[in-house]
Design a protein around this nucleic acid. Sequence first.
RNA 1: GAAACGAUAGCCAAGCGGUAAGGCGCUCGACUUAAACUCGAUAUACGGUGGUUCGAAUCCACCUCGUUUUUCCA
Length: 868
Amino acid sequence: MSRYNPKEAEPKWQARWNAAGSFNADAAAKDAQKYYVLEMFPYPSGRIHIGHVRNYAMGDVIARYKKACGFSVLHPMGWDAFGMPAENAAMQTGSHPRDWTYANIDTMRGQLKQMGLAIDWSREFATSDPEYYHHQQRMFLEFWKKGFAYRKESSVNWDPVDNTVLANEQVIDGKGWRSGAPVERRKLSQWFFNITGEAEDLLAALDDGRLKGWPDNVRLMQRNWIGKSKGLAMKFCFASGTSAPKEFEDGVEIFTTRPDTLYGASFLAIAPDHPLALHYAETDPALKDFIAECQKTGTSEEAIEKADKKGYKLPPEMAHPFDDRKLPLYVANFVLMQYGTGAIFGCPSGDQRDLDFARKYGLSVPPVVLPPEADPASFTIEDEAYTGPGTLFNSGFLDGLPTDEAITAAIAKVEEMGMGQGQTQYRLRDWGVSRQRYWGCPIPAIHCDKCGIVPVPEKDLPVRLPDVAPEEFTVPGNPLDRAEDWKNVDCPTCGGKARRETDTFDTFVDSSWYFARFAAPHPDKPVEKDAADYWMPVNQYIGGVEHAILHLLYARYFSRMMKACGYLSVDEPFENLFTQGMVVHETYLDPDDTKPLKDRWLLPDEVVLKDNVLVQETTGKPVIVGPIEKMSKSKKNVVSPEDIAEKYGADAARWFMLSDSPPERDVEWTDSGVEGAWKLINRIWDAVASGNNLLKENDLSKPSEANDEDKTLRQATHGAIDGVTGDIDHFRFNKAIARIYEFLNALKKAPKASNWARAEALSALTRLIAPFTPHLAEECWETLGGDGLACEAPWPKADPAFLAKDELVIGVQVNGKRRAEITVGANDDKETVENAALSDEGVQRHIDGKTIRKVVVVPGRIVNIVAN
RNA sequence: GAAACGAUAGCCAAGCGGUAAGGCGCUCGACUUAAACUCGAUAUACGGUGGUUCGAAUCCACCUCGUUUUUCCA
């Protein structure tokens, strides 16, 4: 028998698809229903890794399957090409970010094409193309005009040695990654998008059916992220006898979600950057030091949450609104200026952070919420706050009310007293889009001393990145700040001297609308409305769960802004979302521990199995097998798709990536796995090779059954069609593949089937494997004598007549333990099944001498007899 | 610290309230001069503790471990 030769077959079919324009979306029938499938576009990091193969193979299965089902399919590809790694590479290797990025794109495009993906390459673009970012700048000017974009101050990580802004990932243990200097928080004036203005609709769409095609866990994560809470905003007045600063004599406004616990208040706390704290710091050096100390905590949520609770007591005391207690006022490091009003009241019995704080500073801990069934006389709080619901006590007019009623009553009382009002609050903050970096889309704004900040006139767009020397990137800071020729311009309003904005956009902006741009390849406007209306929304979006919150939320918001400006007609860009798992691999470590750890990781290629022990190929020494981890360059546990394709072909790599694990879970790359895929490809090829020209010689539209084996084979064929179709529809690729294995076994067990039944089976098999192993399918299709290309062939249809079973075997339990099996008809009623079970010998033995209490009959499943 | 997800044999997994599938590997056997391929056979498993139920891998609670995200990586 001839072996299948992917090295010849794969390039051959890729060239034919290309020549036929098989995946060109323009050529698709416009009267057909459209289907837009999109995988999250890649960052051009250098080379395609096997995780990309898995991601794009999934989208490719969907694209090819939908095409076979008669849809007009759009499946494009582009590059998320701006970002920090290009600048890091420039620092290390001296290559310009632009050269590095576009060279990477060229490499990766070639690698992707080698995988045989059904992609419309005519629509390809990179976000770093001026043609793309030109339109991003145009839209920004409109958003600015409409008030979606505005400027305000916010904190960044500042490296005081390198004098540069650091990303969170560049801060390691609170220190700058290059300088090692402790990082400080610094305030900068930056651009923001008003995403909180859409918070209500972004939240509503999660539940009103607009996102019913999204996984529940992603919707839940977004809901938590938006974090809507209803509460009370109220003023605490300064206590009588306390001197308050003049501009603050109104009091301190706090926000709380638990106004029911107001009687449990034992202190007030404000954020370190609260105006009142800053006011006192002007005359109090110790407070100034304390605030500076707080600024040393990083800007990440985790850093703030994990930091020790610390406070600094301010001179004034605050008056409790309901009784005559006086409460101390602190500046506290765990209160955030961005959330609520930047001030809280502390109720130690009802909040763990407040309790930790109260214990540290010796403040009282009055319990006010009594848990269900607790004794009010003995209930006290020790080291754990009680945050659950209960009944109010020690709480004046709230005594005896359950938590929810007490919240309403407390808000009503405060409103009646004129001291505050009920308020809705979000955890979501506005989206800061300014980045102090070179390799991003320039923000089209000009700073003029006279006119303030003015937009770049549309006729002057795009604002292109200036060409700076590669050496510029070895110096800390933003090269745009030093590009004097580029930076210094005349003010478009008054003509006087002015400066360009030197910040660029967050790369999340670039990835918030690329899917709409794909609808029409290269119009001289952000999107072609007719094309966008035809293709949007994306019917199936596929990507990693790591994008569940930020990218997906930003893209949803951006679509709303674009709709408001008339670019799009949809507000939700992604109808269905699938989040796939990662590809992981064992790690290998050189046992020589005199070398630094980072130099001891070994590539899988350097490790061989010898006498059942994994050894380093060059030295023969055993290696330490480390944990199975996400593939990463630093741990070297990577495999190159090119090598795999070279050895086994792209089809084997695609097949293995989809066969082993459910797509939403992580999959471990193993050599035996891809070898298994290679074996399977050859088994299919063997099965088909004997069917030379069967399709030319048999008319499949005229069913024919010559012998008994035909019926069995036809049941297997139609069962496989039905199963694989359902599995692809539900993203169960691993199960679809398991069914193809079963089908292949069934085919082998029917050597006497007639040519007609074999033709039907092989034709179905070829079309079922086509989305997974498209090159092999073409080769099979050609051998069988099928019409045209396999990728243009229609999807097979299952005949329901072959799917029903007439009898089945079910288990019989006695007291929950399985004791026998009986064969029953598929349509037998409960009584018949019950009688059959009770009369079974094995069952009789176990119920002998006992009284039958109950018989549970689950049709088609099981019978359980309860007896004692 | 918080949120989300996960844990079934040596490994990967199906099952998602009703008989613990399948694949890889191991071992043995058949085929072969031998090996590879192929075919056949055997063994081993529901992370822990409680609860709900006639019946729990499946539902609930708590715990342990792992992964991802945490507003400037993409």
